[in-house]
Design a protein around this nucleic acid. Sequence first.
DNA 1: CTCCTTGTACTCAACTTGAGCATATAGGGA
DNA 2: TCCCTATATGCTCAAGTTGAGTACAAGGAG
Lengths: 297, 297
Amino acid sequence: MLSGLAHAELIAVLVAVTDDEPRVMTVRAGNALPSGPFESRHRSLQSGLRAWIESQTGHPVGYLEQLYTFADRGRDPKVGDDIRHISIGYLGLVHEQPAPGAGRPEWHGWYEYFPWEDHRERRPDMLDEIVARLTAWAKGDPLRRQRIDYVFGCNGMAWNEDLTLQRHELMYEAGLAESAARPAKALFGRTMAGDHRRILATGIARLRAKIKYHPVVFEVMPESFTLLQLQRTVEALSGLRLHKSNFRRQIDQQELVEETGAVSAATGGRPAKLFRYRPAILEAQALSGTRLPVSRH
Amino acid sequence: MLSGLAHAELIAVLVAVTDDEPRVMTVRAGNALPSGPFESRHRSLQSGLRAWIESQTGHPVGYLEQLYTFADRGRDPKVGDDIRHISIGYLGLVHEQPAPGAGRPEWHGWYEYFPWEDHRERRPDMLDEIVARLTAWAKGDPLRRQRIDYVFGCNGMAWNEDLTLQRHELMYEAGLAESAARPAKALFGRTMAGDHRRILATGIARLRAKIKYHPVVFEVMPESFTLLQLQRTVEALSGLRLHKSNFRRQIDQQELVEETGAVSAATGGRPAKLFRYRPAILEAQALSGTRLPVSRH
DNA sequence: CTCCTTGTACTCAACTTGAGCATATAGGGA
DNA sequence: TCCCTATATGCTCAAGTTGAGTACAAGGAG
């Protein structure tokens, strides 16, 4: 018994936003997240993953953050049947892809996997079905009922976009997601191999929370952009519609952007000023309590 | 070469608050955090650690959260010299200890290790010395200068209690903390073995950030408490003095506590009502943007 | 009884946020 | 040409939140 020995694997949730759609890099035709063994030649977890990602995508990774470490009882014929399998998940952000889906890396919209998470147009109808099934599963247990209400925003509670992971876990418990017994069968959304969809949910949740108090959006933006493009990107990631003028007020109060001087005529109406990110003050202003200016409509 | 194989170890930052002092469980006379190998008999990381902690401290762990996974090139004669060493850090909160320091587990005040982090009485004088040495190290580099100002709250910037980890890392870079070459020598505060002090800094930072938007304080409180006791506990953890009436307003707006009906006469003046935590609504209200009502004085 | 100490309830100005309206500037078509 | 539509951008205002302080209550010690 090799006590304390385990297989270590790095697994990445790599996110880009193209055409107002958040996309995640996948392998195996969208059925798995990219991953690889953590090799001893790597200096550190971070640098190992960074090198590997850049070789795979050809894009520099602007932002890389550890997400979570998952452990599962894996099987490895080389070492023995009962060795632990440890996956260290990372969230990486890359700038807009010029040609999404071109080349080997496959980018899939993340709402393929979590269609109920996109509330930009309207609250997805699918949610009624999900909540109905969860309610049946809860069987009147008041604690479960309360959890459903909170996590899915029912019975007077507001939808909280940050709870992506909790929603997935609740659905998993209730048998609405893929299971070990039926790995490819889920009632809602597209599945992934193993626990990859769960890791993706972790990444989405982390990014949605972070975007509110840290200027990470700019890590997926091109060099220069209009304020509406910026807003659309935040909306894509959070799955919400935002209030336009309040969003703008927030952005320029934080002094995170500056005008480039150029304008974009590509928007149809009055040309919009182009802005660029101004990392100078960096984190100074950023940490003030920044809630999203959600539009109620 | 065993590609992908690694030693996995669990390491815990276990926190309790006694006598208005945050304490952390240590081993080896306060020189290390408790840790142990992750064994394959454990169902999961979380449950393995939970069982282990409860056997060590005799106290149930109310709250357990993964902190971070650290990787270092370790040495293990059993397997070979170049196997990876992975430490998975956890933050755990336990309720007030009846007799701190009694028995095997040793609880040490966390400000022994980070004396400059306690701003309850006054800004520690030590900070002037630290900043002076950092300034010398920065040698006029404006980026370093800006980072020092931000992280330590100099030159018009406010002290941000959440930046414990960044402060430790900056001091480490500048050679003011222990190093691999001189593991026990630090210019400020008490050291720990290996990177344990850094892991403790990670735990402090996480807890200080979390306390603002999630009702985790109650995990270190006794069953019933007065509002001032609650305030003193938050102050102990955050290292700040809070504004009394605003703190109270915040607490009862969140409706997280209810009166027990009893009063405590132990406080010297007018007896204070006792309260208990009311987890009923649990997380519902909690997630609203909760900043600490810092007292400027 | 008086002072001292702690607890509890209000008040009020400054600031922030949610929501909507008004105006500016482009292209396209009658 | 001139209006219409579409987007961009600026401004206002009420409602809510926060920072700071004051007034009053209720015990114990001397």
